[in-house]
Design a protein around this nucleic acid. Structure first.
Lengths: 233, 233
DNA sequence: CTTGGCTCAGTGGCCTAGCCAATAGGACAA
DNA sequence: TTGTCCTATTGGCTAGGCCACTGAGCCAAG
């Protein structure tokens, strides 16, 4: 019942507000890469916070890649400040983001499947089979196989032995999760999905990259056939 | 001239070390999602730093998504802590990271090229042509066309009209830059690269996704033929 | 027995005040 | 012109303290 409750009323820490203000101040005043921010002491006073808090905000902005703090010199604006940071948010709020997620999954997972077919060890294969079995049991018990689906794709990703691709998949993990829930909620879909997984697993077992890529592509395409998208061709 | 100078001898701030220690402490002790860290006062004392510094470290870890700091309750470990965080660093230090970057580029840019062919506007096309012209002029003037190369791929990415794919490309931007420098430094390579770009541009102009994908794939494959890799087949 | 309010100990949030350390840029000597 | 040194500026970090929030236990009202 407690499905969609109030969003937990997240409490904003002071440093977050400060970071936000600095960030938008940079945009509003059109500060470009290399431009300097005011000294900490002055900035803190102007913002009405202590230097310690300002320091936290700067750490946050630094981690995200908006500014660079140089001991003894000052704080300068980094390049690529507008793009990276807020795009995730932009996407999250964007209504028609589903197609983009599908496209991106297709790009990454097709390659991942091909690599997995070429590189999988026996252990990798065992984990893939485990995920398959888990999903099958879940579905037979009346479940939708959500977790099994997740495990399967995770196992395949691991089998590709590419840290970078794994990292990017993780990056879009949350978005993928939403499409997963969407997709597996449709009647008959879990079984179809399981069948798709089996085809992918077989190609990987056989060590056939092209077949694995094709199977994964077909699978992602099938998954993308979601009610939400079916109205606007 | 200041092309690839000293890596700027990055100065580690205390909070970075602290964040690192906490992070590995979490891994080593097998802390799972939901487990609590010691209180700030105790942790600060144990690590031999002030609470303010520890606080900065926690902000950093929070921004990255490793922990969640709850006012009045404590600091708890978040899910997905092991994967995301340190992989970027791991990759950066990994000697044989080149192949992974190439693979990932191939996955993303092949898809991007196909989408660009399907969606490019006339403006997109104009920007692509501009980049092409810029690179050509640079090469004729004796340059290596590094910036032109960057512009071209940027223009194609923009033409794909996918925020998500653009974001992921941005994510691996630094790594790609290194391979770019590596590749274009080889004799005759700039011209070859330019020819590859032309083929891609033509396919996009013609609105042929398959051809664009194929051309991009060939291009990435050509680029990957780097001295560093040629010894270990 | 359940519910709501109260208290209190533990914990993070934030501040003030201050000294240390790195940097850049100017003054000055060679 | 070049190299060295000095110093003002600016960030790095600490210490110590008060306030605010959370959760658990207790207790009285329903």
């Amino acid at each position: 019942m407690s499905e969609s409750f109030p969003p937990r009323l997240l409490r904003t820490r002071l440093y977050e507000q400060v970071a936000g203000q600095i960030s938008s101040w940079i945009s509003d005043n059109g500060l470009a890469a290399g431009d300097k921010l005011p000294p900490e002491r002055e900035l803190a006073q102007r913002l009405g916070v202590s230097r310690a808090t300002l320091s936290q905000a700067l750490v946050a902005l630094e981690v995200v890649g908006v500014v660079e703090v140089r001991h003894g010199d000052g704080t300068v604006v980094t390049a690529r400040h507008q793009q990276s940071t807020r795009i995730v948010e932009a996407i999250r709020r964007h209504a028609d983001r589903l197609p983009e997620v599908i496209e991106t999954r297709d790009a990454l997972e097709t390659k991942i499947a091909a690599l997995a077919a070429a590189r999988r060890t026996d252990d990798d294969l065992a984990r893939i089979d485990d995920a398959l079995a888990f999903m099958e049991a879940d579905i037979e018990a009346g479940g939708r196989g959500v977790e099994g689906d997740e495990r399967f794709h995770g196992a395949v990703t691991a089998a590709s032995h590419s840290l970078l691709l794994a990292r990017l998949m993780d990056e879009i993990g949350d978005l993928v999760k939403e499409t997963r829930l969407e997709s597996l909620g449709q009647p008959g879909r879990p079984q179809d999905s399981l069948a798709g997984h089996r085809a992918i697993a077989e190609a990987i077992r056989a060590g056939d990259p092209d077949a694995a890529a094709a199977a994964m592509h077909a699978h992602v395409e099938m998954v993308s056939d979601v009610a939400l998208l079916r109205e606007a061709p």
